[in-house]
């Protein structure tokens, strides 16, 4: 009868919804979506299928976003998405943003990281010198201890946390 063959067990749903502070209905909806994105039913997401979503492929930051959702299974997928629910802690939202900026994953935002992000944003419409100038200025503004890079704490101080958290809330 064509019934759904790979349904999520109700215990799993409960488990995941407890861990991530999401409603069970939300977890179910996300599971349906995960199956849609995972066209080959391999259990993890891959870059090609993610970029088949045109709205994502049009996003200037898609290389970073895709790298954060690449090869994730459903559990990690929900954890990542769960950071954007209205019930999630502002710190997890900030954390996601910080990880996004931190391209080389060394725990700090250096001016190289920032330059790479800026390059994604503007494509090849601004020359390298100008971008470096912008990046250095931003780093200098946020860097309070003078080591030339932004740590997690400095990042939090530089941002208007409640405002950013409000903007990073997505309904699903």
């Amino acid at each position: 009868m064509g019934a759904n063959t790979s349904a999520l067990l109700s215990e799993e749903i409960e488990e995941i919804s407890r861990q991530t502070n999401l409603q069970q209905s939300e977890v179910k909806r996300l599971y349906k979506r995960f199956q849609q994105l995972d066209r080959k039913q391999s259990g993890t997401l891959d870059t090609r299928n993610l970029l088949m979503v045109p709205e994502l492929a049009m996003n200037p930051l898609h290389p970073r976003l895709v790298s954060m959702f690449e090869n994730v299974n459903f559990q990690q997928f929900v954890t990542n998405i769960g950071a954007f629910s209205s019930g999630a802690q502002p710190s997890t939202k900030i954390d996601f943003t910080f990880r996004l900026y931190d391209v080389d994953e060394d725990g700090f935002i250096s001016s190289d990281d920032l330059e790479k992000i800026l390059r994604m944003l503007v494509g090849d419409h601004i020359d390298q010198r100008t971008l470096t100038d912008v990046a250095v200025k931003v780093i200098a503004d946020a860097d309070t201890d003078g080591d030339g890079r932004i740590s997690r704490d400095e990042f939090t101080t530089a941002l208007d946390v409640p405002e950013v958290a409000r903007k990073l809330t997505v309904t699903f």
Partner: peptide, 8 residues
């Protein structure tokens, strides 16, 4: 970011 998450 929120745009991208929304589209995911």
């Amino acid at each position: 970011i929120s745009d991208g998450i929304e589209s995911i």
